[in-house]
Design a protein around this nucleic acid. Structure first.
Length: 331
DNA sequence: TCTCCTCGAGATCT
DNA sequence: CTCGAGGAGA
């Protein structure tokens, strides 16, 4: 909580700036022209910490066409932890301009219609938004693309999704990282690799973008995987496969793959996925339900329904994830 | 089958 | 914060 303290002793809670209601949207896009941005700061909290470096590079049609990089002299000393992390010392910034001057230069570099890219770029946007408003009376409202979100969706087998890890995954040098300009270049290289990853996974950019934008008109997430969204491009199937023409329904979270991937395997075998358990259901595949608090006795509604049908003599089997994989592989 | 809603897990930037 | 689940009700 921050306070405004007046000379007559009055004080009041500082205006809630955390709304940032003119801020641009986080979008998923692959624009032909954009500005890659990275800042260095004295800490992680935009309310209490200061920007000490702003860097940006403008890319058009995969070419760097303009650059911006300036150090800033903060009002407070730079903590040794930050100097150790970034290599930026108090001495390096002693003749640098204040944030007000630098942000005004930056606002001349960036154009209102530019799309900003960066890694976890919401962090940078928040600092820039607050300083643009307080120092230049300007609302920074550019939409932005977070390369982290793209990486999270596309890269599954790394231990985490830090920029360092994604760079290593693609063999991109991390030399000179934690300085603005170099981080822009590293992020740009990762972005290029991630974009080409779509081809490797034979996915169109439009489909990839769609997978993020499954929001209903009121803005709520409706990210449910629906049976009708899972189609097979295969035309011939092995009719002797144990799952052929069987109806499979999933409940709970699978441990070894996403439900969507599992459903894709099912339809690629010529089987049918169901959204809910019915008399036509043949297999109910049991994922992990532990984390679902609303579930009583560890059983989802699909399980209870299936058990009811089994008691009534229907041909339904409730199977574990592992048994499901055995069935998939034809065993 | 669609809309609206709730919940838990797991992060990233300096 | 974002994302991936499940559920009630129409």
């Amino acid at each position: 909580m921050q306070w405004n303290v007046y000379s007559d002793g009055r004080c009041e809670v500082k205006q809630n700036t955390s709304q940032r209601d003119k801020k641009g949207k986080s979008i998923i896009a692959f624009p032909d022209e954009f500005v890659m941005v990275d800042i260095e700061t004295t800490g992680c909290d935009a309310r209490y910490n200061e920007i000490i470096e702003i860097s940006a590079i403008r890319i058009k049609d995969d070419q760097v066409i303009d650059r911006f990089s300036m150090l800033i002299r903060p009002w407070n000393d730079i903590d040794p932890f930050i100097t150790n992390l970034t290599g930026i010392t108090n001495q390096m910034v002693q003749d640098a301009p204040r944030v007000g001057e630098v942000i005004k230069h930056f606002l001349r570099f960036i154009r209102p219609e530019d799309i900003i890219l960066g890694y976890n770029v919401n962090f940078d946007i928040n600092f820039l938004y607050d300083n643009a408003l307080s120092e230049a009376d300007y609302y920074l409202n550019n939409d932005f693309v977070d390369v982290l979100r793209i990486a999270r969706k596309l890269i599954k087998n790394t231990e985490n999704d830090k920029l360092k890890t994604i760079a290593a995954f693609y063999g991109i040098s991390y030399e000179g990282a934690h300085r603005g300009e170099q981080d822009c270049i590293i992020c740009l290289e990762c972005y290029r690799q991630l974009r080409s990853e779509l081809d490797k996974q034979s996915m169109s950019e439009a489909d990839f973008i769609d997978s993020f934008n499954k929001r209903s008109s009121n803005g709520y997430f409706t990210n449910q995987i629906r049976v009708k969204d899972i189609v097979s491009d295969k035309t011939a199937f092995d009719e002797n496969h144990p799952l052929f023409s069987k109806v499979c329904v999933f409940t709970g979270a699978l441990e070894k793959m996403s439900r969507k991937d599992a459903m894709q395997m099912v339809v690629d075998l010529g089987s049918i996925c169901g959204d809910q358990v019915t008399r036509k259901t043949n297999y109910l595949v049991l994922g992990n339900l532990d984390y679902v608090k609303s579930i009583e006795e560890g059983k989802s509604s699909k399980m209870k329904k299936a058990e009811g049908y089994i008691l009534a003599g229907q041909d339904i089997e409730i199977i574990s994830e592992n048994v499901f994989y055995e069935l998939i592989s034809g065993g």
